[in-house]
Design a protein around this nucleic acid. Sequence first.
DNA 1: TCTTGACAGGAAACCGGTTTCCGAGTACAC
DNA 2: GTGTACTCGGAAACCGGTTTCCTGTCAAGA
Lengths: 331, 331
Amino acid sequence: MRVTINDIAKMAGVSKATVSRVLNDSKPVSEEIRQKVLDVIEKTEYQPSSVARSLTTRKTKLIGVLIPDVSNPVFSKIIEGIESEANKHDYNILLCNSRYSEEKELKYLDILKDKEVDGIILNSYHASDKVSKKLKAIDKPTVLIGTQLDQTMYPIVRIDNEKAAYEAVLFLASSGHCKIGMIHGPKHDPIAGIARFKGYCAALEAHEIQLDENLLYEGHFKLMDGYEGAQKLIKMNPEMTALFCANDEMAIGAIKGLIDLGMHVPDDISIIGFDNIDIAGIYAPSLTTISQPFREKGKSAMRVILSLINMEPVSENLVHDHELIVRESTK
Amino acid sequence: MRVTINDIAKMAGVSKATVSRVLNDSKPVSEEIRQKVLDVIEKTEYQPSSVARSLTTRKTKLIGVLIPDVSNPVFSKIIEGIESEANKHDYNILLCNSRYSEEKELKYLDILKDKEVDGIILNSYHASDKVSKKLKAIDKPTVLIGTQLDQTMYPIVRIDNEKAAYEAVLFLASSGHCKIGMIHGPKHDPIAGIARFKGYCAALEAHEIQLDENLLYEGHFKLMDGYEGAQKLIKMNPEMTALFCANDEMAIGAIKGLIDLGMHVPDDISIIGFDNIDIAGIYAPSLTTISQPFREKGKSAMRVILSLINMEPVSENLVHDHELIVRESTK
DNA sequence: TCTTGACAGGAAACCGGTTTCCGAGTACAC
DNA sequence: GTGTACTCGGAAACCGGTTTCCTGTCAAGA
């Protein structure tokens, strides 16, 4: 049987209130008794039950982290950041992998309520009304990452996606490209979908390039979307000399797709991605891309959650810096 | 204030025992009363506190997953597998990222004890005595993945690393290579370190090739280890025509390192990796490698944990199949 | 010497569930 | 009509902590 606070109290000849006080330094205890209690605790290797403690304190020291896909490096880096910051402050992570399914998102929100997590970090793929409503009902400190919920008052940790995309496409245009295609994300995604597309449009406009529907392809951020999209676009537009992809995975798919058509990157066509995942730097050719600080975003989100939990004002800067990393895939 | 079982009991005019019975179907309740209780529950959107439940049932429905690095695709795929199986059975994942540090491993084991998880899935990088001892003290259902703990009686989910490495190197030797280098893992790692090296030796022996110390380089599974290792080996052994790397990351580093020296893969040298991570298939050249089913291993581990928790015999097959995937990096 | 206040520590309530134990009511057999 | 068995539901104990409230002791001040 497990050692409980009652056992310790009996063995030390004190009440369990005293044991609790020694454990938490919540009220002064004479040095003599404190030592006796500590001795017994050490001898028995007693470890208080966090479940019991949570019941009275109403705190679980658990942060629910809801993301679409753990095995996507974009999200796993965020998790890593969250974890490192959480760990520093004795919080733990309840991992919720929604697999891009709204149903699972909703189910996990129920679970998070049930588990009484102290806070929620949400990277929702389906930022739907249902999600928003459920989140409100849970009524816990919440931070969003790369997600926009309508009429929301939750802090959002993000980068300026539109500006970043603008810079990427501007770089292509400034290098002399004028037939610039884009493999963009789905329209229902306000961040990686819409915002990056807007940046693309703005950059074209800045260089007085007409937006051409034929140079657009919609993907879902998957490798094969890039592969197929690039092949389709280049067949329809042989004069296309540059391609901006809404994420690195599609960009690498695009490179592979073009190589398989016998083309050369960047000699025949320049490719630029978004996110700067690890592969981007080591792919051959290495990928020019927009780098965003995933780990830092995770840490940042966690710090905001801590502020919210402790009812402190949120001093954290929510908009992180991005950076254009020029590598071999463009010229 | 939160709605509790007491509120429901009062509103429905029954005792809280009855509410509990309706909730859990633990004892028959007349249809009339059941309906009344269910109505109240629905109206109030009552959700029982899992913390309180855990305190009495001694079950938290939490599985502690301790791994060295979430952002490494090898581990995140395992996690994905664990999650999908856990989710099916209403278990949740407490994520523990040890960052390859023994200190953090030990700290997390304390946390897992404190949190009273129902089971532990451990992928330890430092399978030390301390870890082993602490694990024993926690005394919870435990499964190891890709980890060997001395004198342990925990089930180990794994592949036959030695055989897999043997097959990889045999493939090279059978293709006519006789100067085959290896970038292996550290010696303290019984699985990815020792076992894969043994397979290499065995394959050489099968082809009566003398083991040559000069063709060996020790890395820590990082990209740069492969990069530097490959460059060093080829400079020392210009006659080397094939290189086996203990994981894909080092293999890709190796390719990059050799390309940067002006060499061609596979024309000048064949490279073979291990793990078949996503990049392996899309890298240019794509990587010949040993594929192992990470997701399946994760699922498998979770199923074993479930069996252990439910005191059922473990029927799961613990040794998974690997497969040699021949791609462009070898000839 | 008596009062007052500070302080250490114990008893008990409480958190929100589950489960045991028991009693009331009903049905059936004799 | 009485004894018996069975069903349903309530009271209360319990899980292992925290916290409030109270009591006893001792030192300082009047």
